[in-house]
Amino acid sequence: MKMTSSVVYIARHGERIDHVDKSWKQQADSPHDPFLTEVGLRQANSLGQHLSDKRLSHIFCSPFLRTVQTANEVSKVTGLPIKIEPGLSEWLHREWFSRSPKLLPIDTLKAKFPSIDTTHTPVVFPDYPETRDRVIARSAQTATLLASKYTGNILLVAHGMTCEFTARGLTRSGPVPYIAYCSLQTCVLADDGQTYHVHGPNEPDVSFIPEEIRPYVKTGVYQ
């Protein structure tokens, strides 16, 4: 499949509330769909500022609230609409989700985030529950379809594991180092027009996030 996107940026969402407040889930109406903390919003804004001169053409994000909030901060800076893409969703693992997660409907999201483009037709819908092999295939398929359908430089906002599998699907590479909050991977189209290579160091970049809110980067890689 021939790709048309010159550069694919892949970013994880910012810091999520349930990773800071361990009691949040017990009282939450939507425990499977946590929102960003204030730090997470600031991290997302830093991501937007960093991408402001990268000539983005499109912003895609998972339908989970934390990824939409992250994409919205980028949208504020770039002026680009947000396209909701279920194929970028969190890994729908039985151990993480006792049932298919209940997420905010697109109309509700649109009311909260007016920059959402409701005319976008998703390219992939995940099925619950997902095995590891299935989420790897789903992430790769989503990235490949978006990169072949849309031109210019595009941003994909996803989750830790799906960022990993999305990057691997595009670059056909092995595991990459830990993906921290709002860290960024830059995948540049190779000369063959069909695959991408990671631009710069293999480690996802967090250098653009101010030190006081820069996420802790663990050692090791996803397997």
Score class of each variant (00 low, 15 high):
M161E: 11
Q141V: 09
T166H: 07
T151I: 08
R134Q: 14
V157A: 13
F165K: 00
R168A: 01
F125V: 10
V124L: 12
F165Q: 05
T119R: 11
A147H: 12
R132I: 10
D117H: 04
T119F: 11
T151W: 13
D127E: 15
P114G: 02
L170T: 09
K112H: 03
C163W: 05
R132F: 13
E130L: 09
A158S: 13
L146E: 01
A143V: 01
K112C: 02
A140P: 01
V124F: 12
P114F: 02
D127F: 06
P126C: 02
V157K: 15
Y150G: 05
F165A: 01
T144E: 15
A158P: 08
C163K: 09
H159Q: 04
A158M: 04
N153M: 06
H159T: 02
T144I: 12
Y150T: 04
A158F: 02
T144G: 03
T119W: 11
I116S: 06
T151Q: 14
T166S: 15
L155H: 10
M161A: 13
G169E: 06
I136S: 01
T166L: 06
G169H: 11
K149C: 00
P114T: 01
I116V: 11
P122E: 06
D127M: 12
V123H: 08
S115R: 06
Y128K: 06
R134A: 13
R134G: 00
K112T: 01
T131Q: 11
A147D: 03
T142D: 03
K149N: 05
D133M: 04
G160Q: 12
N153I: 02
G152M: 11
V123R: 03
T142M: 01
L145P: 03
Q141P: 00
M161D: 09
D117T: 06
C163Y: 06
S115I: 06
A143Q: 03
T144F: 04
L156F: 14
D117Y: 05
S115V: 11
D117N: 14
A167G: 11
I136G: 02
R138G: 00
T144Y: 08
T162L: 02
H159G: 07
T151M: 12
T142G: 01
Y150S: 04
D127V: 14
G169C: 08
S115K: 08
T121C: 10
T118I: 15
F113K: 03
T121M: 10
T121K: 13
A158W: 04
A158C: 00
T162W: 04
A167C: 15
S115Q: 12
S115A: 15
F113E: 03
T171R: 09
E130S: 10
L146P: 01
R134V: 11
T118M: 15
T151Y: 13
R168N: 00
T162D: 13
R138W: 03
